[in-house]
Structures are given as structure tokens and as C-alpha cells.
Design a protein around this nucleic acid. Sequence first.
DNA 1: ATGTGTAATGTTATACTATAACATGTGGAA
DNA 2: TTCCACATGTTATAGTATAACATTACACAT
Lengths: 159, 159
Amino acid sequence: MPIGFEQHDHTTCIQTALTSAEAHCADEGLQLTKVRRRVLELLLLEHKALGAYDILSTLNTEGLGSQPPIVYRALDFLVANGFAHKIEKLNAYSACCHPGKSHAPVFMICRTCQAVVETQTEPLRNFLGTTAKAAGFLIERTVIEIEGSCPTCQKAETL
Amino acid sequence: MPIGFEQHDHTTCIQTALTSAEAHCADEGLQLTKVRRRVLELLLLEHKALGAYDILSTLNTEGLGSQPPIVYRALDFLVANGFAHKIEKLNAYSACCHPGKSHAPVFMICRTCQAVVETQTEPLRNFLGTTAKAAGFLIERTVIEIEGSCPTCQKAETL
DNA sequence: ATGTGTAATGTTATACTATAACATGTGGAA
DNA sequence: TTCCACATGTTATAGTATAACATTACACAT
């Protein structure tokens, strides 16, 4: 499983996520159509954030569509249903690593290799809740993104 | 002072921020030129995030420039020197409310009225630091944005 | 089997956000 | 004066996202 920046069984990781998405769609009466499923697969292939137009160019080579609305609609679906997240700092998208769980995701984004790791933190959620409450603010969504250098790239830089 | 969504002496608030920016520029040998100063003023006028092209259209009516690089350069300067922040979720910019202090700012963004309130939280900073450290990740920048409903708009919605 | 409604997709056009690249001005230091 | 660093002017273009309307596909009621 993808914990931090450590190695994991990525094939299993992808399969688990796809299976989970299928199950959730079946439960909720949602349609995981060909394009939507393929976009989710592409996002799962690497723990990187992909730009909408990167995804679109792949879809295009596969005959699944060539115009921007194709990919944005698929991304909207995936994001709305918790299968993917938008990384605001990068204007890019990343598969969700903890589908099904309600979450205030935290992303660690490596500036060098573009790796994106998603973590969840209940304490943080509580903490922001307290902060917001003190200001009388009602939280609907949170964007928490940490940009920096991942362990691998830190080592590479010190060589 | 702007604490949460409460009323404050906004004239003083603006003056303080401008004076602080001038002082900081003098200390550091930075030039707070006409355009840069005006953009900062515009950002300070309201506790809202302004889009680059909104700012540009004002600059244009004032004869300060009409092309995108004018405003983006000014914004780059202000952000680089801590006088303003980019709100990633909105692709918009907001004056910094705590200039001079090192910070991992937290923004509360009202989805309805676009008000943006900036807070600072050492505990949060520490918390993210701990999270990142556990993953071996080196933090360079953080983006923390809470989207929701401010006290005023919550009241308006329940009418 | 036929209509009917909903959701998804196809298609064209355009809006919005941001930067590259190169030219020009400006003010201080050698 | 000459040079240099920095700021600004200007043109063009790249990158991100959505509006609007047409068409298809399928479930399901008649």
C-alpha cells in the first residue's frame, strides 16, 4: 500500500482502487463508463498528478475522445465521487488513495519528481475545525498541499 | 485588525500594511514601485481575493498598464516578498495580513461572498512538520485553504 | 415495439489564467 | 561616460477550463 514515499505493490494498489470504485458505483447507481474508468486507471498508473491535457492526449491516442470537455467531464465525475482529487497548486489531478473514507486529504508534492503522496490526518481535521469554529466559519472543503522535496530527491540533491 | 470575520478599522489596516511594506522594502533594498504599490493597495482595499485580470483592468483605467505581464510581474514581486499570497483554489491573489512574520498561512474562503480571511497557526505548522518528517519529506511551501461559508453568509442563508 | 426521460458523449467555440521572448527605459556605480 | 542591474513596455502564445448546443444510448413505462 502507498504509505508515504515507500515502495509498495503497485499492481495490487491499482486493482484495489479500481475494484473499490466499481463497487462504490454499483452501490450508488453511478456509471463507471469507459472514459471515466480509463481516466481513473491513468491516474492510478503513477503516483503523480496528471494535467487534464496530458490525460486527454492519451485518450486521444486510444480513440476515446479528443476535445477538452471529454476529459474534464470524466475528471469532474471522479472528483465529485471521491475517486480522484484536484491538486490546486499544480492544476493537476491525482487518484485518491483512500477512497470511501471521508477525508480532508493532505498532499505532499515533490517539486522535483512530481510525486504526489496523499495522507489523511484526523488530528489536522479536528484542528482546522476548531480554528474555523472560532471564526464562526462553516467548512465545506479543504485544500491542504505541502510542496517540497521527497526522500529520493533529497538524497539525489546531496550527491 | 482583521481577526476572523469581525469588523475592524480597515483604514488603519491598509495604512499599517502599506507602511510595513515600505519599511521592509527600504530595509531590503527592494523597490516598491508605482505599479507594485498600487497593486498592493488594490489587494488591501477589500479582504477579498482578486483575479490578476481584475487588477489589470483597474490598472488599465489608471494608465498604469494594459498587458498581462504588468500585473503578473507586480504580483510575483508581492508574493515573493511576502506582501501578498496566491489563493490557489481561486486562481486569485490576496494581500498578506501578517506581513513580516514567517508563516504557513491558512485561508478561510467564503464561497458566497468571496471574503478571504488569513490566519496563522503555529500548532498547524508543527503538526504538518511532524507529518512530513514521518514521511521523510522536506517542506518548502504549504497551501492551506478552507472553503466554506462565513458567519454573515450563513445567517443570510437561514433567512 | 414504441415513446419518453435521463444521463452520457460529441462538437464547436470561447473564456480565463499565465508566461516566453525580446525591446526599451532608468538610475546608480565604476 | 559607460556599463550594469532592474523595471517596464510590447507582442505573441501557451496552458487551463467551461458554455452551449447537438446527438446518442439506454432504462423503463406504456
